[in-house]
């Protein structure tokens, strides 16, 4: 696979991400696509740690760490300042986890994209509060164990559909991407970079530690999420034009769930129910894209 991206590495070795960390793979691809003229806003998330303790940085771009719920707002300020300085070349990107995006940072994100601030908001989604020790977020999928949804109290609520929430803001560009599909991911990042206004990227980033999967399965699981329609790859322009980028064959969600410790407690009947939910979501997406199943 040859990527249409920078050969130079803007992420350094020696970071403290867990072995097989999907969030670091996502970061690496995104930076390769954006290049050096990038300022990153980093609200609290795993990457607050991976980026390195003082005086170290694992990123070769300027980064501003900021409070958990401020990803959208801080980026707005950085963009405003750059604009005032006449710097329209530099890309501003917020790099937030699912907690900082779906939950605590949702207001600032909504505010920023409603103002159509010219920046990219990238959410690397590992489906729980991993940095604090695997607590449930509104991105945690139906059926998952977390340290706050244990035993019989596994999460019995759906994952928030963040992309649709952003699409409802009618922003110029919203897309899903996945670390197992680097070419698609890089194309989307480059596309987002070229568009003025607010861009949202929802990047699936597997978490071996929190999902109870072997580190070497990180990409495999990520790929399966797409193959099973659990995490479809699609993009939406101006809140209305849907394009589905990948139409998998009829893979069953069961295989995806069976490989992950966080779903170990699920019974066949639960998996059947999840399959129905996934089918329903997929059907909904197809309808939005004006396509037939």
């Amino acid at each position: 696979m040859q990527l249409d991206a920078l050969d130079k590495e803007l992420m350094c070795s020696g970071h403290v991400g867990c072995p097989g960390c999907g969030a670091t793979i996502a970061m690496r691809f995104v930076l390769k696509a954006l290049g050096e003229k990038t300022v990153m806003v980093l609200p609290a998330c795993c990457w607050s740690v991976i980026a390195g303790p003082f005086p170290q940085s694992s990123l070769k771009i300027p980064v501003i760490h900021t409070a958990f719920e401020t990803g959208g707002a801080t980026a707005s300020g950085v963009r405003a300042a750059l604009d005032m300085k006449g710097d329209t070349e530099t890309t501003v990107i917020t790099w937030a986890g699912d907690g900082g995006t779906f939950d605590i940072g949702f207001q600032a994100l909504s505010g920023a994209v409603e103002r159509n601030e010219d920046f990219i908001y990238a959410c690397y989604d590992n489906e729980a509060y991993m940095n604090t020790g695997i607590q449930r977020s509104s991105s945690t999928p139906y059926g998952a164990w977390t340290t706050t949804t244990t035993g019989a109290d596994w999460k019995k609520l759906r994952k928030k559909n963040i992309v649709e929430a952003l699409v409802a803001h009618r922003i110029p560009y919203a897309a899903t991407a996945n670390i197992a599909f680097p070419e698609d991911l890089i194309r989307k990042v480059k596309k987002a970079k070229a568009i003025r206004g607010s861009k949202f990227l929802h990047i699936y980033a597997s978490c071996p530690t929190g999902w109870r999967i072997p580190s070497e399965m990180s990409i495999k699981i990520a790929r399966m999420a797409v193959q099973t329609n659990i995490f479809p790859l699609y993009e939406v322009e101006n809140g209305v034009n849907y394009t589905i980028n990948y139409k998998p064959k009829e893979y069953l969600v069961r295989e995806y769930f069976k490989l992950q410790g966080r779903f170990r407690h699920l019974k066949d009947t639960d998996l059947d129910q999840i399959q129905e939910m996934v089918n329903e979501d997929w059907g909904l997406l197809l309808r939005k894209a004006g396509e037939h199943a």
Partner: peptide, 16 residues
């Protein structure tokens, strides 16, 4: 102040 000046490359994570 909290501001970085070096990379993480001095962490030899191969020891993990």
């Amino acid at each position: 102040m909290p501001r970085t000046s070096v990379t993480t490359e001095s962490n030899k994570t191969g020891s993990w």
